[in-house]
Design a protein around this nucleic acid. Structure first.
Length: 585
RNA sequence: GGUGCGGUAGUUCAGUUUGGUUAGAAUGCGUGCCUGUCACGCACGAGGUCACGGGUCCGAGCCCCGUCCGCACCGCCA
């Protein structure tokens, strides 16, 4: 038997027992006549001690991360360590076995490691020995279990769908798998099991879910991996609010069980239009105010050329920042002018502590007008109003980005405060100038809003652009955690959808024929949602990056630095797959 | 595809502004001392292709050009 106990469980009550522990050497402290070993496993750290000269010599041979076995007696410590769960006791070593030695690890295996991201990624199996990462994966496990418990209790069936499917070119790039038995043909890995789960609804499975890997061949970010995990769900015989209510329940369950946070009130529901108008984002961070205000009517047409030529003038009111120096404002102006934000410039109005108003545009506007603008922002003394102007849609987004930045600078984005939100009524369609056609904002099976059906069937581009959809996103602290929609189950609406998107019947059949065909056999009304499980875990763990909630993530370039995938395959494999050669970049 | 920041002991970084003798610190590692440590302490020691290639210069870790790699972001992500 390798061990009788784990390194996290022995307490004062166990004193006197003879035990066997097994684990990794966290640290050795040699004090001349006596030695201490901190033995670590998944469950904790227990101190082993000896003052025997022979045993001291044995201990001296150990190194960090050796796997050892300690047989000895539990005893009360002479000097206790209240910081450790096992800090009241220690093991007096009677026998010490080296199960497996270790080379010196390239970084310290401690809560705050000295290793950089790159190095820790390369030695991920060592990094995972550290508490922060270990605890993240434990959190992830608990969350997955709770999701299953809740959905199972609500009659959802977990059904697996295939990973090798047909490529559907709308949307993200597919990862592609060549078929050996079908020369020149390829599978795609699912970007999500969208069609399959809708087919499960046709099959009558009513309530389906799956915690499932999805694959998208797009550039990575701190919160985007090429393979990621979704909580994928679909329900039949539901309208939008049925879906929202069900999954609001799931979210509340998760908050309560995992974070001990109770939400008595229903989650806020906000239209996409309002989200853009007041937050400059389709995923507003509701942890702080600083709402966008439209002041076009007050400032346009008053003789200031920049505003007169703008579709929109608006801004945010930053509390307590009227004291910003010229240098700070210049720096902020440079910041918003970066291509990532894309603003032309930044105009400020300071409402100073004495009530005076100072502005970069006070040459052009009377104090009365500026005071009226400040009133629109409900600015208090000491506040700083930051404004931009330009094309409405673009300026709103730039202001939204600025709002988040100011929220960061003022520490208004506490990672342990949670403000959930449903954003609803997204536009059904997005016009793409380059290809001169509409794309589905969500996907081509999303149902148009009932109220916009007339516009949807108008065959008029301007009216079509205004159609909203029966879709929804679950937003938590400025992050899109989930999204879904009510699907089209009416063949007539689906046909119109393909028409609006510019697909011929042949196109549609080629891409989605199996789904269209299935819908002829009695498709129930249905809708669903999918949550980004990695992001969900990261948010519950109070962090921005999903990488530390995935056991073996990829780096910025989609590379696994541990096994160095992707890699070339040999000519035999290439030939079997009927692949000729790679294109050199 | 683009923008920004970075690459110097095993590791994390300083040194680059103003080019100049032998490139530093901390930590880790090794050796010795130390009987109550738990961020142990003290002493000594080893440890460097300054990412790579080219250029400027009497002289380059430092300046210039290119490449590679990492991170964050924009585009992209139905």
């Amino acid at each position: 038997m390798y061990r009788t106990h784990t390194c996290g469980e022995l307490r004062l009550a166990d004193a006197g027992r003879t035990v066997t522990l097994a684990g990794w050497v966290q640290r050795i402290r040699k004090m001349g006549g006596m030695s201490f070993i901190d033995v670590r496993d998944r469950y904790g750290i227990t101190q082993a001690v000896t003052d025997d000269p022979e045993m001291n010599a044995e201990v001296a041979k150990l190194g960090r991360e050796f796997v050892i076995q300690v047989i000895g007696t539990v005893r009360e410590r002479e000097s206790k360590n209240p910081k450790m769960d096992t800090g009241d006791i220690e093991i007096r070593i009677e026998k010490l076995n080296v199960i497996n030695p270790s080379v010196t690890p390239p970084f310290t295996i401690e809560d705050v490691s000295d290793g950089g991201d790159d190095l820790r990624m390369k030695y991920r199996y060592l990094d995972l020995r550290r508490n922060p990462l270990k605890n993240n994966l434990i959190l992830r496990h608990r969350m997955a279990q709770e999701v299953r418990r809740y959905l199972d209790a609500h009659d959802f069936l977990e059904i697996e769908t295939p990973f090798l499917i047909r490529s559907t070119p709308e949307g993200a790039r597919d990862f592609v798998v060549p078929s050996r038995m079908n020369p020149g043909e390829f599978y795609a890995l699912p970007q999500s099991p969208q069609q399959q789960k809708q087919l499960l609804m046709v099959a009558g499975f009513d309530r389906y879910f799956q915690i499932v890997k999805c694959f998208r061949d797009e550039d990575l970010r701190a919160d985007r991996q090429p393979e990621f995990t979704q909580i994928d769900c679909e329900m039949s015989f539901v309208e939008r609010d049925d879906v929202l209510d069900m999954f609001e329940g799931l979210m509340k369950h998760m908050f309560e069980v995992i974070l001990n946070e109770k939400f008595e009130e229903p989650f806020l529901r906000m239209s996409w239009n309002d989200a853009m108008k007041f937050y400059g984002s389709d995923k507003p961070d509701m942890r702080f105010g600083m709402l966008l205000r439209d002041v076009t009517d007050l400032l346009k047409g008053k003789g200031f050329g920049v505003f007169d030529s703008s579709e929109y003038v608006g801004g945010i009111c930053v509390p307590g920042c009227a004291g910003y120096s010229r240098k700070q404002l210049d720096e902020l102006t440079d910041w918003v002018k970066r291509p990532q934000v894309g603003a032309k410039g930044l105009i400020y109005i300071k409402v100073e502590e004495d009530g005076n108003i100072k502005s970069s545009i006070d040459k052009y506007f009377s104090p009365e007008i500026l005071r009226e603008v400040a009133g629109r922002f409900e600015a208090d003394k000491g506040d700083l109003i930051l404004m931009m102007s330009g094309i409405r849609a673009k300026t709103l987004v730039s202001l939204g980005t600025l709002r988040i930045e100011m929220g960061n600078r003022l520490n208004l984005r506490d990672p342990h405060k949670y403000c959930p939100l449903w954003v609803v009524d997204f536009p059904l369609l997005e016009w793409d100038d380059e290809t001169q056609r509409f794309y589905a904002t969500h996907h081509p099976f999303t149902a148009p809003s009932q109220k916009d059906m007339e516009k949807f069937f108008s065959n008029d581009k301007e009216q079509e652009a205004e159609v909203s959809s029966d879709s929804y996103d679950f937003v938590l602290n400025g992050t899109e955690v989930g999204g879904g929609s009510i699907r089209i189950h009416d063949a007539r609406i689906q046909e119109q959808m393909f028409k609006v998107l510019g697909f011929s019947r042949e196109d549609a059949d080629y891409r989605f024929g199996f789904l269209i065909n299935a819908f002829k056999y009695g498709a129930p009304p249905h809708g669903g949602i999918a949550f980004g499980f990695d992001r969900f875990c990261a948010l519950f763990g109070g962090q921005d990056t999903i990488r530390d909630f995935i056991a073996f993530p990829k780096n910025n370039m989609g590379r696994d630095t541990m096994d160095d995938a992707p890699a070339k395959i040999d000519d035999v494999q290439m030939k079997e797959l009927y692949l000729k050669s790679t294109y050199e970049k």
